[in-house]
């Protein structure tokens, strides 16, 4: 009921906003007045909710009612699609969203096939496909730096994530104090994880200076948060039987974790960790773009000077390494199953 109203409210509100914007054609100046705009949007949302309620009262099934229930009226089996309100509602909303998206992204075939721009793209691709192998030694040197940056970030993240995984597992953290710790840490890790490694790299490049160290720290923070979540989910899904058995021998809490839980989660842990290293190598190249060191930093330097043949060489090196690691980690993870 509540979810239906909110969902329909948002949909109808969106359509009303689009219509109003199309009719009134506000200037950017006017759109930047957040206060007024939000009042308008709130009004539209409220109108949408009212509309949803009214339609239900009229025994018309809205999209929200179909999704979340309860239905306002029984759905006839044999009715053609164009005689169902909610299908029109979905179609119109999607169309409107598509139109808004096209306008917002300034989509233009003219730009895409503009002669001048097109010639530039051709020049770029010519460079990329005809790499200058003279920079290969430096590219290799840099990608080695990137690989080890990712490796160190993963290794340093393992012990932290390992400890956190037990403190963040619901089945271990029982009792009132433990629950508070669990909740606080979970929230903290969720926030940490929702900040992209790219952002962490920017933060650390200010903190410790531009270079591989900043990139490594950024990857490490992100890895700790991601691994801790994956690890703790494994801990939560272990079999209870062995835990009970070890407890019944008179073992204490830490012994129980070490003997009953760790053997059960070790292989998945290794599997996740190998995959994380693989992800970190890919991320490390991106992080280099904002000053995290390694091959990414080299890439952005040549790109800034429009030296496309050198960029082509770097991209080739990255592609080979990422592909090789991806294969290797897939094989290792397969073998660990």
């Amino acid at each position: 009921m509540l979810r239906r109203t909110i969902f329909d409210g948002v949909l109808f509100g969106f359509l009303l906003s689009v219509l109003t914007a199309a009719v009134l054609a506000p200037t950017e100046e006017q759109l930047l007045q957040l206060g007024i705009v939000s009042v308008w949007i709130l009004i539209f949302f409220a109108l949408g909710c009212v509309l949803s309620g009214a339609l239900t009262r009229l025994r018309v099934n809205t999209l929200g009612a179909v999704l979340f229930g309860p239905l306002a009226a029984a759905e006839p089996e044999d009715r053609a699609w164009y005689r169902l309100f909610w299908k029109w509602q979905l179609l119109v909303a999607l169309l409107a969203a598509f139109v808004v998206a096209v306008v917002k992204t300034e989509f233009s075939f003219i730009e895409l096939f503009d002669q001048h721009g097109f010639a530039g793209a051709v020049r770029l691709f010519k460079g990329l496909l005809n790499p200058n192998w003279e920079v290969l030694p430096r590219a290799v040197l840099n990608i080695v730096e990137t690989i080890f940056m990712a490796f160190l970030a993963t290794s340093l993240a393992i012990p932290l994530a390992f400890v956190l995984s037990f403190v963040c597992a619901k089945n271990i953290m029982q009792g009132p104090v433990a629950r508070v710790v669990y909740f606080v840490l979970r929230t903290f890790l969720n926030v940490t994880r929702s900040i992209e490694a790219l952002i962490w790299a920017i933060i650390f490049s200010v903190w410790v200076g531009i270079g591989p160290f900043a990139g490594m720290l950024a990857l490490m923070i992100h890895s700790v948060a991601s691994l801790a979540k994956q690890y703790s989910e494994m801990v939560e899904s272990v079999e209870e039987g062995p835990i009970e058995a070890i407890e019944s021998t008179g073992a204490n809490k830490l012994q129980t974790i070490w003997y009953a839980i760790v053997p059960q989660v070790l292989l998945p842990y290794i599997s996740f960790t190998v995959y994380r290293w693989d992800i970190n190598v890919r991320m490390a190249t991106i992080i280099g773009l904002v000053g995290g060191g390694g091959i990414g930093t080299m890439l952005v330097q040549y790109q800034g000077q429009a030296m496309w043949r050198e960029v082509g060489c770097i991209i080739a090196v990255i592609a080979v390494v990422v592909w090789a690691l991806d294969q290797a980690s897939a094989h290792i993870r397969e073998a660990l199953k």
Binding site: G241, I246, S248, T249, P263, Q264
Partner: peptide, 14 residues
Amino acid sequence: MAMIFQHFNLIPRQ
């Protein structure tokens, strides 16, 4: 008071 269980509850892989 040692205990044994229906599903044995041994530690696998050990």
